[in-house]
Design a protein around this nucleic acid. Structure first.
Lengths: 205, 205
DNA sequence: CAGCTGATGTTGTGTAAACAACATATGTTG
DNA sequence: CAACATATGTTGTTTACACAACATCAGCTG
């Protein structure tokens, strides 16, 4: 089982993965994802096909790593670090998601929209958002439920869904305008385990 | 002893050498050649220092390979092939030399001109010119003396010297204007072993 | 002068990449 | 249906790269 991208030190591994991700990025400008074979990718990357399988189980895993890597790089460039429940930090994450997703749609070949491509990047991006949220969530002074993982996952899908709605529906709002609206919806999720908002048990029949 | 650049098939070797040459090219925009250490180059190239010595004996050999590679790439792009004594083919080689040398001077850091840098690229470029000439020289219908190697070397240095004169002395001529003049000087060299121009033995005292 | 510093080459060991060979789907063509 | 083609994974061997350790040599600097 290969190491994750961020904990790799060997320059050969970093280089090979960059080549593969860059190759996929290039090919997706011209073809739809399901028209691209592993062979195509390794040819473009000037990497042996067998080497591909040392790093990724298939092209879906590569796409996943590519999206996650791109998203985290965007966050790093902007010095975005989600630190707890601070609204401005969450806003920065949401804004980054807006920019990344619209960038993602721009860079795609036209034919992409007719394929089963969207679901693939959806899971990749939500995973990336979840990871950022969970890395910055405080564990002290909080109720044990819902678990931080539950909160992070829920919030990440909520954020992605909201951004997708904004990105798809052409309502003409800018990213900066939509962020506060999304924030308003998401903040309660992030604060769910704050003792001040303790959930009352659901009353049953 | 490492293989020459053009006869290498292994992608790892090609990539490593490209990285090293690219690194040297980048560093020379900022520093003079003698301020650059092997360590600097390998750092920039993200290649291990020991690996450098698998390919080049020192940074001078790298510079040599870089210049030769760049020059030959320029010729390939233009489909320049010196085929025998055809004047237009020789003219294309000369024009390429003009362009390459002026490009070379533009890409250099200012401080470069005060260092012992020129002699290094001189021998690299003349070697490259010589190689092009010799690859296209006919061997039939010619006198055995002077040898083709002698002719090629002489012509290559003549061409380089002429181009250097044009490039250094600011006489305001364009490359296209200077080529015919240089051609006029060089053609006799290239035709020296044509039976029609047989050299008479030098009369002595 | 001795001691330090930094660049240079060299060597040996471990690991990743290249490559060929093979087996297995999946699909399409007669 | 059989025959063929194409993409996918897998395996084993060879080769190149990464890295640390070492020795050497110049240029300082007290």
């Amino acid at each position: 089982m290969p190491l994750s991208d961020c904990e790799v030190r060997d320059p050969r591994i970093r280089r090979t993965r960059q080549l593969l991700q860059g190759a996929l990025r290039n090919l997706m400008q011209k073809k739809s994802f399901d028209e691209i074979s592993v062979q195509d990718i390794t040819d473009e990357a000037t990497v042996n096909r067998a080497t591909f399988y040392d790093h990724y189980t298939d092209k879906f895993a590569l796409l996943d790593a590519m999206v996650a890597g791109g998203f985290h790089r965007l966050l790093d460039e902007r010095n975005v670090k989600y630190d707890g429940t601070c609204a401005s930090a969450a806003g920065a994450v949401i804004l980054a998601t807006c920019d990344y997703l619209s960038e993602c749609h721009k860079g795609q070949a036209e034919c992409q929209r007719q394929s089963a491509f969207e679901p693939l990047i959806e899971s990749a991006i939500t995973k990336a958002i979840r990871r950022v949220l969970i890395s910055g969530m405080p564990r002290e002074g909080r109720l044990p439920v819902p678990a931080p993982e539950m909160i992070a996952t829920t919030a990440s899908w909520a954020i992605y869904g909201a951004v997708k709605e904004w990105c798809g529906g052409g309502n003409g709002l800018t990213a900066e305008e939509i962020v506060p609206q999304i924030l308003q919806l998401v903040i309660p999720i992030l604060n769910a385990s704050d003792p001040a908002n303790a959930a009352a048990p659901l009353a049953r029949g």
